[in-house]
Amino acid sequence: MNRLRIGIATRAPVGDDLRAALTRLAERADVRAVVDGGRFDTVVRTAEAPGPYGERTTVWVDADTDLTAPAVAAAVVVLAAPAVAREVRTRVTAPVLALGPQEAHTSARPVAPFTRSRIRRARGLQDATAVARHVAGQWSWDHQPVDESAAGSAAALASVLVTDDATTAVLGAAWGAPVVAPVELARELDLPLPKERASATPDEEAERLLADPAALARHAQGCHALYAREHSPDRAVLQLEEILGSAGRHRPRDGFAQPLDLLGTPTDSAVRLRASGVLDTLRSPS
């Protein structure tokens, strides 16, 4: 597998958000300091320290960055923490990727509302609807208090997840749950806020969604799209790989791996084994 080779040329001191972003990159790519030398697919810099002509620069921006700086204009990719990424996305020409201190839910897989219903039925749970709530620090499942350890199952299986907690909202979005939060929190996280929401409380909104399968599925899809766009380091690095690959320099990973990754295929999915088996039939014996 060809991992991205990323050079780091950021000036000290490095803030917490940038440090977190670099950590996420280092977990998913070959990262080293530019001063150590080598060939890089891209180099991460801040806007105050533009790279040399010809370098494919990934520029880190924060809330105070001057977006008119030449380094931003010349960047191949702009990198920012989720809240900042949302702000700058319409103000710069380069693609903006969100990467930052958010908790990574690497085992989460989106489960659509109708599949949740079938899984609940398979598990002998009530299949029609099941409302998970995490409000004021207390979890409940259909109004029955449940332990904090049920959070993952609730995010994966509930018909709808009502919460006033940002971390839980992102967890739910990672699992493709229809997440309903108070309006202020929904705005802060950029969760879907349909116009029908108006002044409805989260519980009223949950009821409305449960009565409308298409609206529920649309809401769930919007929540997961938000997670993929702003809270998934895996997705951010895949996008970075794709952007750099389409620019013609970076050689994408061989064979089926990249298209499978871009579709969100789990590492243990049978189709990966089948694709790998097909490639094996074409390899010369060693």
């Binding site: 989106p110 659509a112 398979a122 799209a225 579709l263 969100g264 295929t265 789990p266």
Partner: peptide
């Protein structure tokens, strides 16, 4: 069916379909 394999295939197909159609 409602076996784990079927449910995971259904889940994954929904995710793939959604990504491809988007």
């Amino acid at each position: 069916g409602l076996d784990d394999e079927s449910l995971e295939i259904q889940r994954q197909l929904t995710e793939w379909d959604t990504n491809a159609l988007l």
